[in-house]
Amino acid sequence: MYWFIYFLISLVAAPLLVGIINKVKAFFAGRKGPRLLQLYFDIFKLLKKDRILSNTSTIIMEICPIVNLTAVVVASALMPIAGYPSPLGFEGDIILFFYLFGLGRIATIFAALDTGSAFEGMGASREAQFSAIVELVIFTIITFLALISTGGFSLDLLLDVSITNTGVGLAITPLLLITLAFLIVLLCENCRVPFDDPETHLELTMIHEAMILDNAGPDLAIIHYAAALKLWTMSGFLVMLILPKLIINGFVTVCCYIIGIIVIGAFIGVVESILARARFVKIPQLILSAFTIALIAILLHSIFRY
């Protein structure tokens, strides 16, 4: 029941997170910034508009935004919250969880290539490159979670007990390192600074935005919403990773998690305000450094355990 409430909240509140990030960025820049609910207005406005498709495009372009949305929604339905596993969860759902994001990504890449635009091809190419390497980091993180797991391989078992398993004190360092690695993954997967600048206006420097140049109206609304929901879900994953198991009261738990997600949103805002977008050639190095961090975490954990 609490899980269901949380799921509904996350479906509704997901665009809010983007608003929070933008508010924080505006605060750092000394601007007033867009309203907190700006993305809701944008989505609502776009939904009312006509659908425009390119002459070149085919059925791929028509269905891919919906495939993307479906994948992200189902993935977010797999996320548990502390003590309340998702009714869809099963052993190994963590693989499905990340592969569903993969489905959304390949749908976006196909749609981008469908238009035959040079910029969209460029964006798709970059996305394909970075996501291939990010996959490496994600599964290293899952390996770490499996190592500290006490038996059982479902999202809720892996995430829920993470801090209780490593213990406190020095033994917590590997978990902190893993959190850092996942934070880098989160920034990359959701196209935030320093991997991609969501606010850039130059097509040549875009990744995600370049891939959706030819989407308009309801399609664009769907893509914006899916991106926001993905950010929310992955932030939820990060919160689960660092927060200890809370079995107090269902309502309090849900509140704690939502507050955690908001804090992460604010943190992303701070990161975006103080960092510049990295050069494209540097990005693989950044992702590989996350991979190294995750590997070090695994090694440290092995050392502490034995």
Partner: peptide, 10 residues
Amino acid sequence: KIRRGPTWDC
């Protein structure tokens, strides 16, 4: 109806 147009290429 769905509108059609050329691909936007900057």
